[in-house]
Design a protein around this nucleic acid. Structure first.
Lengths: 304, 304
DNA sequence: CTCAATCATCAGTTAAGCTTATGAATATCA
DNA sequence: TGATATTCATAAGCTTAACTGATGATTGAG
């Protein structure tokens, strides 16, 4: 039994018109074509659906039952077509972002995205780089913002902006460092507050200091950059603060002070990545533009 | 843009398998056939639905959107097929009945019908003969119980049982008549209580008395037989009481007494009618049996 | 650099679907 | 009651859609 949409469409026309010839006109086929489809449908369901009279047709009880179901089917088909017809590309865009970027970039970016067509049905996922890349490869994400070059060949990256690392801590601690030649390599590993393993920010911080996780004795494994900043603000140590987070974190954690490294400043490149097989109707480019612009807004004002 | 069920079915298989070749196996076609349908679907909706990679496929945002809709469509199709597959003939049976039969026949018949397959989805409509026949012809009813032979050629009747007319009134009035030779023609038209015009019972009563509505001066136009019996019980006149109603009405209206006419007793034939084009898988015969049996139960015990 | 996957494309065949023409049954009208 | 005009069903021929089997292009892995 294989019921086709065509059969249902024809059947509904017949049910409405109560008349083969008229129904055939409505759906723009000849009457025999309609007859054949109805017969095929009746054969498929195994029962008579209409009673043929000399004056036209009348639905059988089974026919009425089918009519209701058929209407549901057609309604869901209509929903489908409408879902595709809406302006823009029509689908839900799955966007991933690493936790050391998301809370700072999104507040500025979201309003702009919402205003544009991209944000019409945007879903966000915050996770660490590896996870994001996995989901991207698997197709559960369409694009992701990360801060380390992807090592996979099926994924391509578009640079958004460069995010410089500042050194942040309590005012007292920072003051101790001021005036001296500040070099990442000279920092005391024991004073360094780091994010949990898996966060690229922690790894990158260690890298610019020429350290690895073993050499750092105070690995707090803090869950979020925000927490880290609050710890640093209370004098518990120093942390690398990406410039993108500067404004928000200094506002949120009183006492937190940040200084800039001398050139060449350590930095991370924030990237928008997608599968190489993805072809966008321009939304990728558009998304790059929006994120790049809002990102650069966040890093362009450079206090001290 | 003409999307077919086949395309949706194939697309869902592809979405689940993430792999043309595997999906093609699942749906038992060759891989090119699947490729073609997917391409046709993409063409129909105007956008790419899957990204082709070397390792398989991944849905685009639009693809995911379509997937959800497609599932809905398939779900409603499943509902349709299931609705047809249920035991019995599967449809709602529309049964009409005239008001001078329904309240007496239904209480006994309904439990039996519900137990059988017919009553699984039975809808009732109470109306006067003409209306019932109109709706039957129009296909809004499948069968109807009436008490006068249908005058239409597209409708055929199956006799259920014969329902004899008794004469009912207050005990005093009936006592006056007892002993005398009781002839319908001898009844005083002025004493006769009749149902509203359109009820066949009223017309039939007049007919057996050799009267018409003009000659009857006390046409109350009562709405229901039940009301009529209560009026008669209070001595306001005499009425024809179909035997089918006897037990219920004498129980409900204290003081109501009925006597039987001498043979040949006036009577009405209760019929089950259907369109001549209706062909039942036996449910019509079954319905006849049930109604006939319960009807005869009601008229078989004959108190004086 | 070759091999083994992937999906796409092409040519030929089969099946489904439509149209035109015709047939059987039934109601309408004279 | 017979002629006519409805109704829907059926049949033959054609057109288009759909599938198969073979081959090609691309890409990742050894």
């Amino acid at each position: 039994m294989n019921i086709t949409l065509r059969q249902l469409r024809y059947f509904l026309a017949l049910a409405e018109q109560g008349h083969f010839t008229r129904a055939a006109e409505v759906i723009h086929v000849t009457q025999p074509a309609l007859s054949m489809q109805i017969r095929a449908l009746e054969e498929a369901v195994g029962t008579r659906l209409v009673e043929r009279t000399a004056a036209g047709v009348v639905l059988t009880p089974q026919g009425r039952a089918l009519e209701n179901h058929a209407r549901q089917v057609m309604a869901s088909m209509a929903g489908l077509e409408q879902g595709l017809r809406r302006p823009g590309q029509g689908g839900r865009l799955m966007l991933g972002m690493i936790p050391t970027v998301a809370p700072y970039l999104l507040p500025s970016a979201l309003p702009i995205l919402r205003a544009s067509d991209i944000g019409r049905d945007l879903h966000l996922r915050e996770a660490q780089t590896d996870r994001l890349l996995d989901e991207l490869s698997a197709g559960r994400l369409d694009v992701a913002v990360i801060a380390s070059p992807p090592d996979r060949h099926d994924i391509v990256a578009q640079p958004l902006f460069t995010d410089q690392f500042l050194l942040a801590g309590s005012e007292a601690r920072i003051d101790q460092l001021r005036g001296r030649a500040l070099e990442p390599h000279d920092l005391d590993p024991g004073n360094l507050l780091l994010l949990d393993e898996g966060h690229c920010l922690g790894d990158q911080a260690l890298e610019v200091c020429g350290l690895n996780r073993r050499s750092s004795r105070l690995d707090l494994g803090a869950a979020s950059l925000s927490t880290l900043c609050r710890l640093a603000a209370q004098g518990m140590g120093l942390t690398f603060l990406p410039e993108i987070a500067l404004r928000q974190e200094t506002a949120a954690a009183p006492g937190l002070t940040a200084i800039r490294f001398p050139d060449p400043q350590p930095a991370r490149d924030v990237l928008l990545v997608r599968r190489s097989s993805t072809e966008s109707d321009g939304w990728f480019k558009e998304l790059v533009d929006v994120l790049r612009q809002t990102g650069r807004e966040l890093v362009k004002n450079r206090p001290s």
